[in-house]
Amino acid sequence: MKKKRVMFILALAVLLAFLFVGVAADLIAPWDPNAVDMANSLAGPSRAHWLGTDHLGRDLLSRLIYGSRSSVFIAFFATGCTLLVGMTIGLVSGWLGGWPDQLIQSVVNIFQGIPSTAFVVAVLGLLGPGMRSLLIAIVVSSWAGFSRIVRNQVLEVREQHYIEGARAMGAGGLYIVRRHILPNILLPLLVLIATRIGSTVLTVAAMSYLGLGLRAPASDWGIMINDAKLYYIRYFPVLLAPAACLTLFCLSINLIADYLRDRLDHDDGAARML
């Protein structure tokens, strides 16, 4: 347990570092990530370019830093949107119960039945590439899972006597959701949110790599990997650097989720349905 705690703190530090780097990219990045310098392409590390340059002579470190901004920002924002949509639908479904619940759950079943990567690709194909399409694709393909879990949690919590007690005292639906239901389902949701941020970063990178997400010249880890595929033999860090960032980010977010899940299991077994 002690070891896990250390890992958790390290992972949290890494996550916060990525966030900080993303937010403060303008201040930290030594170069403009799009400044082309063909005379100096695929150069090794130097005083001026600590990690060297890519095939267009752009500073690798600066591109990584701006890539952190786009990847992490999109992942957090998309997960936030998904959470909002999924949680609202799940709350409504679980709270109303009966036929509205059955109806909503049939829709959820349909959405959950479609493999999510195929779904994202299909939506992007329909809407065309770009940041906004990517956001929509992620929300549309993953709200169902969120809402299912929220709904199951609500169904479990709403049977508890303290909910009946609050209703007997005259509490309305909004009061009960805010004071009694949300606080009791939030912790298990945290695990899901963390896992989902990790997988969203990967989705964003994968779509950008496929040319369906963000487009060049934007700096994004997925685009960087895509750019690197022709040049990594001549200068390996063009591939290694973005791949390492991606791996490190996903690893730390998964360690955080893992730790939270353990804590929950110790707490009251609320994570068993995740």
């Binding site: 303290y162 009946e164 007690g165 005292m169």
Partner: peptide, 24 residues
């Protein structure tokens, strides 16, 4: 109209372990 009656008619439940919100 029911709200004032909520004060006057109350219920004590069977299972103490779920009668209070565990996060409060």
């Amino acid at each position: 109209e029911l709200h004032p009656y909520r004060r006057r008619v109350q219920m004590l439940f069977q299972h103490p372990d779920t009668s209070l919100n565990p996060r409060m």
